[in-house]
């Protein structure tokens, strides 16, 4: 087996090419659903952010686009953004923009993932450990 250092160009460039790492470069057709917007206005939505439909406002609230209504149907029970995107068969980037609309209209409630820092919380890790043990 060749040592890792033996392929310097491959291992040295790849990680540094990982640039800004946001939604730069994404585009086209699905974004017609978002009225051409390609970036969410706010960064509330990670892949594992939980989304739940909020109780409808009195009077039913503003009229929604069909895709928005579809999302509300799919998140009656809490669901993460990545799963929503899969069920909608839409890119996460598009779903995030639609979710921004729904959040602004107070039609959904959002729960960010567990904060993870280098000093992790033991209780959380032990819980994960026990869950894996049961697999």
């Amino acid at each position: 087996m060749p040592p890792r250092g033996a392929v310097p160009s491959a291992r040295r460039t790849a990680a540094s090419e990982v640039s800004g790492g946001d939604t730069a470069g994404r585009l086209v057709r699905p974004f017609t659903l978002t009225g051409g917007r390609t970036q969410p206005e706010r960064g509330d939505f990670t892949l594992i952010t939980m989304v739940t439909a909020a109780p409808p406002p009195p009077g039913g609230g503003a009229r929604l686009q069909p895709e928005h209504t579809r999302i509300l149907r799919l998140c009656r029970e809490p669901v993460v953004v990545a799963e929503l995107a899969t069920r909608l068969d839409l890119p996460v980037s598009v779903v995030s923009i639609l979710l921004c609309d729904l959040l602004a209209a107070e039609r959904i409630v959002v729960q960010p993932p567990r904060a993870v820092s280098r000093t992790l919380d033991l209780e959380l890790l032990q819980k994960v450990r026990q869950g894996l043990d049961r697999l």
Partner: peptide, 8 residues
């Protein structure tokens, strides 16, 4: 909300 916590 009463959604489960998520980690990855």
């Amino acid at each position: 909300v009463s959604a489960p916590d998520t980690v990855k």
